[in-house]
Amino acid sequence: MNPADNIEHTIEQLHITTRPETDKHILDDAFVALEKSAQEQAPHVARSSRPNTLRIRIAELAAVAAVILVIFTLFFGTPAAEAVTFGEVIQALGKVRNVCVSSFRIDRPEPTQVRWSSLTMNIKLFKGRKEGKTEYALWDFPNRRTMFVSSGLVTTKDISADDYARKEKILTFTPGLIPITDINDLPEGSQWNKVEDPNVSAVVPGTEVYDLTYPQKSTKGTGIRFIKWRYFVDPFTYLPKRLEYYDKIKTDFMSQEKYRFGKYSVVTYPSENEIRAIIHNEFGPAALQPRDPGYIGTQPN
């Protein structure tokens, strides 16, 4: 094959690895440089143990609109000074570029669906099972196509203009991780409370657990359904690692009636390379490649 025919693919495939002796040499020198840098910075660090984190948080909080602050005050007053707020979770999720959500039903050990979203690659990948077979679907926005693989057979379809707009809108947020796309959309009476039970937080070690509860009109009539999203949050990054979904009908938050636990999700934050490897493994090396040599793609902004 003439390399000019697929020059982008050939260049993209080029991968050079470092030699072990190079790694050792570079890391040894870098560690020495890091030690020197740490010694020079030591007095500054001693004065403030979390300077950078503090600056990040101040900058992030400053950017939140006044109306959101009012909502925080009304609905998300946190019992402990160090507690993570729901706003911080939303903000943290807003900065995530790559995410994988595995959805489970409590009566099944295997996930019902696994979804990967990548804003850096502008793709969405789904894994599910149908009639005992594992299937994958890929929404490849830069190439405006969808790919589907089942039993090793790959089929490809163009995304129409209408479908593109609809699918792209879905890509811009992480469905299944927050019940709303705008904090202002939370119903009146919503609550965000820390769960202090150590048995609950032991489900995902190292996390803090919070319950987001809110009322929702029943779809069948005038009844009220109470929804609870239980967040297992990394206290450092504010990102959820696990979510549990509960509901109860025709009662109030404080009633003795128990919430029903139906589904849960396990959330991970893979690198772009990890997602790319899955796609290449399932769809073959041609996946994600530009569809024609002159096509330069649509990149996320």
Binding site: I16, T18, T22, I26, D29, A30, A38, Q41, H44
Partner: peptide, 21 residues
């Protein structure tokens, strides 16, 4: 590749040296 390894070395040593700032 040899020059590229030199570049990689310089970038990481410099990166580590300026970590504090």
């Amino acid at each position: 590749t040899y020059a590229a390894e030199d570049v990689l070395h310089d970038v990481f040593v410099s990166f580590a040296a300026s970590a504090g700032k």
